[in-house]
Amino acid sequence: MICLDEMGPQASKSYPGRRLVRPAGPKAERATQEIDYGRRDVAGYVFGALRAATGDAFTATYTGRTTANWIDFLAQLEGWIDPAVERVYAVVDNLNTHSAMDVLLFNPAHPRWEFVFQPKYAAYLNLIEPWWKVLRSLALKGRRFDAWAEIEDAVTRATAYWNAHKHPFVWGRRRRHRTPRRPGIAAVPNVALI
């Protein structure tokens, strides 16, 4: 199973990061960021695929979200997937470019592909959605971009970093604040005997 989607539009601008501000006495400073005025370049889109079971990721950048770009992305993805895989289940959302006539014609040419459309208003079912947050953190957070080419380079390097340190991507939230269980004898349930 492969989760497919696009992240965008992304523009060349400053992306806010987090910086620790240490309080200096009774009056603490506030974290500030330089205001980013104006547009410097055309926005673009990042198309991505995530194999949740292994953690493998594949991204490609495009200047627009068109059917032709989506078909080109699927063709690149076909080359990325191992030819020994007999069936490819691609989980996608209900965007009109994902179900266009050219995409429907992609299926007979590639019979191992099967598109699974997630229900409307259920983006959380696609595992690539939380992975986009990770990619934004690796590629964009806390940086300033003056051109679309810089964003493309940052996304390429972040994807390579992710693939070098990949792990299976698990759906759901981690439970951080769970009280540890004490080993020992279980408590007797509070029931009345008749």
Rank of each mutant, 00 (worst) to 15 (best):
W132I: 06
L127R: 15
R144Q: 07
L135C: 02
V116H: 12
S137T: 14
L135P: 00
L138R: 03
P130Q: 07
F145P: 00
K141R: 13
T97S: 10
L135F: 01
V134I: 12
F117M: 09
F117T: 12
A122T: 06
A123D: 11
D102L: 11
S137I: 03
P130N: 05
H110T: 05
P130K: 04
I128W: 02
P108V: 05
K120S: 14
R112E: 13
D102E: 15
K133N: 12
K120E: 11
Y121I: 02
R112I: 13
M101I: 11
A139M: 03
V134L: 07
N126A: 10
A100W: 04
A109E: 14
F117I: 08
A139G: 03
E114S: 13
W113Q: 06
A122N: 02
N126E: 09
Y124H: 15
R112L: 14
K120R: 14
P108Y: 05
Y124D: 15
V134W: 02
S137P: 01
L104W: 08
D102G: 09
V116T: 08
M101S: 15
I128D: 04
F115R: 11
R143S: 04
L135M: 13
W131V: 02
N107A: 15
S137A: 12
N107V: 15
F145I: 02
K133C: 11
R136K: 14
L105Y: 12
L105T: 13
K133M: 07
Q118N: 09
L135T: 00
K120L: 11
F117L: 10
D102Y: 01
N126L: 09
R144K: 05
E114D: 12
S99V: 06
W132M: 03
E129H: 03
P130L: 04
V116D: 04
P119T: 09
F145S: 00
M101C: 11
P108Q: 08
N107Y: 11
F145Q: 00
R136E: 13
T97L: 07
W113N: 04
K141T: 10
F115S: 06
R136D: 09
L125V: 12
G142E: 01
M101P: 08
P111M: 11
L138V: 00
K141S: 12
H110S: 07
L140T: 02
T97G: 02
L104P: 01
F106H: 08
A109F: 07
K133W: 06
K120I: 09
P119L: 08
N126W: 05
